[in-house]
Simulated assay, not measured.
Amino acid sequence: MSAFVGSILIWQSSGRRLVRNFGYYKVNLRTNRIGDGVMFIVLLKYVKPLSVVDDFIQEHVDFLDKHYKKGDFIFSGRRDPRIGGVILVNSNDENAVKEIIKEDPFYKNQVADYELIKFSPTKYDDKFSPFINS
């Protein structure tokens, strides 16, 4: 069983700086690459008008597709109202997640700010267990 340490990270694309760090959780995930790690929720918040977001949307979708094929992402989608997006990342490595984010056209073009939330799914539906259990 994993121990609670807790974490919320805010990483802004404009300043590219860590604002808060409260530690981490550990949980055993489904791949050997992940091991005794955590999951990350990445919250994107648009900092440019939607017309600029739309200019980069296809490149962003290609970026998402690449990381789904690599097994990095579990789900993603738009926030409602359309102020950004959400990505669940299948990784326990904060630096690896930050490197993935740096590939996002929204990041490269300073279209969105990113908030990383480390967490341990301690209660979940059985349908989600393939992502939790080795």
Score class of each variant (00 low, 15 high):
residue 1 M to P: 05
residue 4 F to Q: 11
residue 4 F to I: 14
residue 5 V to R: 09
residue 7 S to T: 13
residue 8 I to P: 07
residue 8 I to R: 13
residue 8 I to F: 14
residue 9 L to F: 08
residue 15 G to N: 13
residue 20 R to K: 12
residue 21 N to W: 04
residue 21 N to Q: 12
residue 23 G to Q: 05
residue 24 Y to T: 15
residue 26 K to Q: 13
residue 28 N to R: 14
residue 29 L to E: 11
residue 30 R to I: 09
residue 32 N to T: 10
residue 35 G to R: 05
residue 35 G to P: 05
residue 37 G to F: 02
residue 37 G to Y: 04
residue 39 M to W: 03
residue 40 F to L: 06
residue 42 V to E: 05
residue 42 V to C: 08
residue 43 L to Q: 03
residue 43 L to C: 02
residue 43 L to V: 05
residue 44 L to D: 03
residue 46 Y to C: 00
residue 47 V to T: 13
residue 49 P to G: 04
residue 51 S to C: 06
residue 52 V to Q: 05
residue 53 V to E: 00
residue 54 D to M: 06
residue 56 F to V: 01
residue 56 F to P: 00
residue 58 Q to S: 13
residue 61 V to T: 08
residue 61 V to I: 14
residue 62 D to I: 00
residue 64 L to F: 00
residue 65 D to G: 07
residue 66 K to F: 07
residue 67 H to Q: 10
residue 68 Y to D: 05
residue 71 G to W: 07
residue 71 G to L: 09
residue 73 F to D: 09
residue 74 I to T: 13
residue 75 F to G: 02
residue 76 S to Y: 01
residue 77 G to P: 01
residue 79 R to S: 00
residue 79 R to A: 00
residue 81 P to M: 10
residue 81 P to F: 12
residue 82 R to E: 03
residue 83 I to R: 10
residue 85 G to Y: 01
residue 86 V to Q: 00
residue 86 V to W: 00
residue 88 L to K: 02
residue 88 L to G: 01
residue 89 V to F: 05
residue 90 N to V: 01
residue 96 A to S: 13
residue 97 V to T: 07
residue 98 K to W: 01
residue 98 K to T: 04
residue 100 I to S: 04
residue 100 I to L: 06
residue 101 I to P: 01
residue 101 I to F: 01
residue 102 K to H: 14
residue 102 K to A: 15
residue 104 D to T: 03
residue 104 D to V: 02
residue 105 P to A: 12
residue 108 K to N: 10
residue 110 Q to E: 15
residue 111 V to Q: 00
residue 111 V to D: 00
residue 112 A to Q: 03
residue 112 A to D: 03
residue 117 I to F: 08
residue 117 I to Q: 06
residue 118 K to I: 10
residue 121 P to F: 11
residue 124 Y to D: 07
residue 124 Y to Q: 10
residue 124 Y to F: 15
residue 126 D to A: 10
residue 127 K to C: 14
residue 128 F to G: 05
residue 129 S to W: 09
residue 130 P to D: 11
residue 132 I to S: 13
residue 133 N to C: 06
